[in-house]
């Protein structure tokens, strides 16, 4: 038991994602081979997969170049902390769970606020769902300001090194759920862990699936917050975004939503409130209602289903 309370030096905790590259590559090759042998369990496309990997590389690269800003902010806040929380294995385990809850909200806001979506859309931009898709990460997330969500940890005495460590483990876990090669796990696992099945739903473009299953590691957050939806057995999934991109160019993929925001904001004749809404409202919001939000798409889909049921009832 003592080992749970033994103090660790948080500055010496390594960042697991730094060494994860070879593991990612190995599992991607394994997944391709498995699909090739079994002739099922997913799909790879050369340009799509290479784009995703290049975007992952770019994300780490920009993290090196810009990520210092966020880390510096956490350290700055840590210097004015109100208490000290020693870094122990037990503390890291608790932090892992709490971090995952904060990740749930971070992820939810990334879907519901266009400024954050402009980064996160990158991850959803592939029409494929395989391990390489997990690596399709934004390049400019360090500039989004989302790091502010994590500053209370530092303020209450969590060392930024410990935060980076659990954040990295969280990300590592999520790599393995981006696959169609695994169906469903036993019910008890599906009940509280985020699994490939749950996360496939999150990447699906079916209106009912939009903005659901935000979890990182523990699906219980979605169950608690009412954003959980189950993958139906044998359901055919279509992945990507509502308006899929027509390019494999990593720079365009990384920046297309920011370009869209800019074009919307500089339109003539808008009020300040409307310009701000183009940045911070839900993706798909427009001042003239010319586009659809995920809520609009869900309402439309529900209405279509109800109309179809009504028609069936009349015919019966």
């Amino acid at each position: 038991m003592d080992i749970l309370f033994s103090t660790l030096d948080p500055a010496l905790l390594s960042d697991p994602s730094t060494y994860a590259g070879p593991v990612y590559a190995l599992f991607i090759f394994l997944e391709i081979t498995l699909i090739l042998i079994l002739k099922r369990g997913g799909d790879y496309e050369p340009r799509d997969a290479s784009t995703s990997i290049l975007m992952g590389t770019g994300s780490v690269l920009f993290g090196f170049l810009l990520g210092g800003l966020g880390y510096a902010l956490l350290f700055k806040v840590y210097t004015v902390r109100v208490m000290d929380i020693p870094t122990t294995p037990l503390m890291l385990a608790v932090l892992f769970v709490v971090y995952d809850f904060i990740y749930y909200w971070n992820h939810r806001w990334s879907h519901r606020i266009r400024w954050f979506w402009a980064n996160h859309v990158v991850h959803h931009s592939s029409q494929h769902y395989n391990l390489s898709t997990a690596l399709r990460q934004p390049w400019f997330s360090s500039l989004s300001g989302m790091v502010l969500v994590y500053t209370p940890f530092a303020f209450f005495g969590v060392h930024p090194g410990a935060l980076a460590f659990v954040g990295s483990l969280n990300l590592l876990y999520q790599f393995f759920i981006h696959t169609e090669s695994i169906g469903k796990f036993p019910r008890w696992i599906e009940a509280f862990m985020n699994t490939p099945s749950h996360h496939r739903v999150h990447h699906s473009t079916k209106p009912e699936h939009l903005d659901m299953n935000y979890a990182g590691v523990f699906i219980v957050w979605d169950r608690m917050m009412g954003t959980f939806i189950r993958e139906e057995d044998g359901e055919t999934m279509h992945y990507g975004i509502v308006h899929n991109l027509g390019t494999f160019n990593p720079l365009r993929i990384s920046s297309h939503e920011f370009v869209g925001i800019f074009k919307d904001v500089v339109q003539r004749g808008l009020t300040l409130r409307q310009r701000l809404a183009y940045i911070f409202a839900v993706p798909g919001w427009t001042h003239d209602g010319s586009r659809q939000t995920s809520d609009d798409l869900k309402r439309e889909s529900t209405a279509e289903h109800e109309a179809a049921h009504a028609q069936e009832s009349v015919e019966a």
Partner: peptide
């Protein structure tokens, strides 16, 4: 050196995966 290593391995792995996927017959 780290950045150069990151870039070269990233591009290398991306190219290797693309080639493998293509040779596996998923290129069409």
């Amino acid at each position: 050196d780290d950045l150069t290593f990151l870039l070269t391995t990233g591009v290398g792995v991306a190219a290797a995966v693309a080639l493998y996927v293509y040779l596996a017959g998923f290129g069409k």
